[in-house]
């Protein structure tokens, strides 16, 4: 990862320093929030048997969650408070200890993605890695990534076959993936009536799940089928939950919320690859910092024959297909 190597030690030190501070402040706030929750529980419940306290605490936390602001408008303190509430709710509802990060975009980073059409052989390891990493709903079988089996002459995923059950690779066929293109000029962002979906400074198009009202206008606006809606309450078995989470990434979604690929924000902002790129057995998936001239994605853009899907729409995707 080019951009990782380039990250200066100084930056790393300040990051660690910050996260230490964060941890201290969070630990303090955690106690405060717990106290507040118990306090409001007392108000809500009067003097109830201690056995009921769990669910009452849950109610109190959800009550506080209801009134929180849009993520972008929250102060650091408010962000910490909501994260503590969400972590506590995960513990209460699922019995799972999760760590939710609110790490912001790294300076000087703009993420880009390359998909090697020549290399992909349709194993779909990326799809299952994505499902596991991002805690996608197992009940409705939500998947951010779709792989299409293509006949020669076809050059856009929508022309291919998205429902192939044969052994791969098949001679004479090739494979193309489709997922959120993280457009620089994203139609979904323009459409959203509440600004719940927006572009982070590192170019990732995210959804503030808790701000989304579920109108699905973004879904109609997306030319890449990059968005998924929670028609039912999403189900992820407790032992399969990925615990390292991000507020804008793989944390627990709720019924009625829109969600989408976030380039695995919880991983990539820590300097790791997105789960799909890491899982790919053929190395067909390239990810990196577009602003770093030494990154792999820049090498691909400069030396390979790249193209983008539906270029004519002017959405300016940061997802390139390329041919070896």
């Amino acid at each position: 990862m080019g951009f990782l190597k380039n990250k200066s030690c100084r930056q790393q030190i300040t990051d660690e320093h910050r996260s230490c501070q964060d941890a201290g402040r969070r630990a303090f706030l955690k106690k405060a929030v717990k106290a507040a929750a118990i306090g409001s529980t007392a108000v809500v419940a009067g003097c109830q048997a201690p056995g009921l306290l769990g669910s009452k605490e849950e109610m109190a936390l959800q009550f506080q969650e209801y009134f929180k602001a849009h993520y972008r408008l929250m102060t650091e303190k408010e962000r910490d408070a909501t994260i503590i509430r969400l972590e506590r709710l995960a513990k209460l509802q699922k019995g799972v200890d999760v760590q939710i990060s609110s790490k912001g975009a790294l300076p000087g980073v703009l993420y880009g993605y390359g998909f090697n059409v020549t290399r992909c052989e349709g194993y779909m390891e990326c799809v299952s890695a994505c499902v596991r990493e991002n805690n996608l709903d197992r009940k409705s079988n939500t998947q951010y990534i779709r792989i299409f089996e293509m006949e020669p002459g076809q050059m856009a995923p929508n022309a291919g076959n998205g429902k192939f059950f044969n052994e791969v690779p098949v001679d004479g066929r090739f494979y193309m993936g489709a997922q959120c293109n993280h457009c620089d000029n994203a139609p979904c962002i323009k459409a959203c009536p509440t600004k719940a979906t927006y572009r982070e400074p590192d170019g990732i198009v995210v959804v503030d799940y808790d701000w989304c009202i579920g109108c699905r206008y973004c879904m109609a606006a997306c030319p890449y089928y990059g968005r998924r809606f929670n028609w039912n309450e999403p189900v992820v078995p407790a032992n399969e939950i990925t615990r390292k989470q991000h507020y804008l990434g793989n944390r627990q979604r709720r019924r009625g919320q829109m969600e989408k690929c976030t380039f695995c924000v919880q991983r990539t902002r820590e300097g790791r690859l997105p789960a799909c790129a890491e899982a790919c057995p053929t190395g067909a998936r390239i990810f990196g910092n577009l602003l770093d001239p030494n990154s792999e994605i820049r090498f691909v853009l400069e030396n390979k024959k790249v193209f983008r899907w539906k270029e004519e729409l002017g959405t300016d995707p940061k997802f390139w297909y390329f041919i070896d």
């Binding site: 009536p193 509440t194 701000w211 989304c212 009202i213 579920g214 809606f229």
Partner: peptide
Amino acid sequence: VDLGRPLQGWHILPIIGLFN
């Protein structure tokens, strides 16, 4: 009735929500 999260409807109101 088409909204996924009608309770969050106030998010769309100007001033108290974000009206895009």
